[in-house]
Design a protein around this nucleic acid. Structure first.
Lengths: 185, 185
DNA sequence: CTCTATCTATAAAT
DNA sequence: ATTTATAGATAGAG
């Protein structure tokens, strides 16, 4: 929202995104609060940012809301912090995280052209397509960076003229007085 | 919002308010989801309506988010030592695993041509090389699979001769007695 | 932080 | 459910 439409996908972590995150967090909190007032609801909101910091909101008491959830969610979806249960629970969580890591590693290997034998012909074809797309984006990014660099040089006065290789081939005789130059790539 | 300004105070429970409650709940959920995607945050939302019905949202797993919250909040109390130790141990482990996941996700994104702005020119070039290598391996794997498939056909007697397009172009006159054939690709 | 143009959510009506 | 008019949220700029 605002001055430009925001596509909903992961964004680069910039100074600006920090500000936006804060704004949206507050917006969410405000709406949660409105909901709780308008409809006499009990609302709890928990947010961990990507760097692990915690932000929470509750119109009553977050622990009691969680307890209430526990009671409803079938006796023990959320284990007690009793030692045994805690240990068990964390093991489960570790297992899940490990599983996720395995998946990501497999995906990575495939993207790097490894372990291809586990793929079907169709999956292989899809992978092929994806990689072609990546290369395309990478190429255009490279181009973009190069352009930016050249602009920089211009700005610092290190380049007076940009000469194409074609131009060079034809000879510099008729050209302006060069000091420094780079070839167009 | 909408056709009239809504004062934020408890409202009568009417048929209309039910609809509004639903809308606002969904709006809140949507925003929570956007927050989690845009900033890679872990978000959990718990709502109990006034009649006690539960609505929840979580972009990952609500129990694990709650546990994560507890692990942080419980630092204020003094639990028994075993518990502290176990919790600490698994917390460390989880943190490491999460970190690994982040790394893998970043790598994956780069391989898919996303979030390229975080890379230097050199890294971009390396990525480019890697992907070219992948594509090469994928192509050769595709070829290999195709070959294997053709062999299969041979073994089942579905193909008698494999004819190259060059061969075909020259004409079939001087060739052996064909029954079935496929073109080499 | 404040401002504001622009985008989004939603109250009310259909 | 779908539409519409309006209040609200917020991205980017200052």
């Amino acid at each position: 929202m605002g001055r430009g439409k925001t596509e909903i996908k992961r964004i680069e972590n910039t100074r600006n995104s920090q500000v936006s995150f804060c704004k949206r967090r507050n917006g969410l909190k405000k709406k949660a609060n409105e909901l709780s007032i308008l409809y006499e609801a009990e609302v709890a909101l928990i947010v961990f940012c990507s760097r692990g910091r915690l932000f929470e909101y509750s119109n009553s008491n977050i622990s009691s809301t969680i307890e209430r959830l526990k009671r409803i969610s079938d006796n023990s979806v959320t284990p007690d912090l009793d030692k045994v249960f805690a240990t068990f629970y964390y093991q489960e969580e570790s297992a899940k995280l490990r599983q996720q890591i395995q998946m990501l590693e497999t995906s990575n290997r495939h993207l790097l052209g490894d372990s291809l034998s586990t793929l079907t012909a169709k999956e292989l074809e899809e992978l092929n397509k994806k990689l072609k797309g990546s290369l395309k984006r990478i190429r255009s990014k490279k181009h973009e960076m190069l352009q930016a660099e050249i602009e920089q040089f211009y700005r610092r006065g290190r380049i007076t003229y940009l000469i194409s290789s074609e131009h060079l081939r034809r000879g510099l005789q008729s050209s302006p007085p060069y000091k420094n130059f780079v070839l167009e790539i």
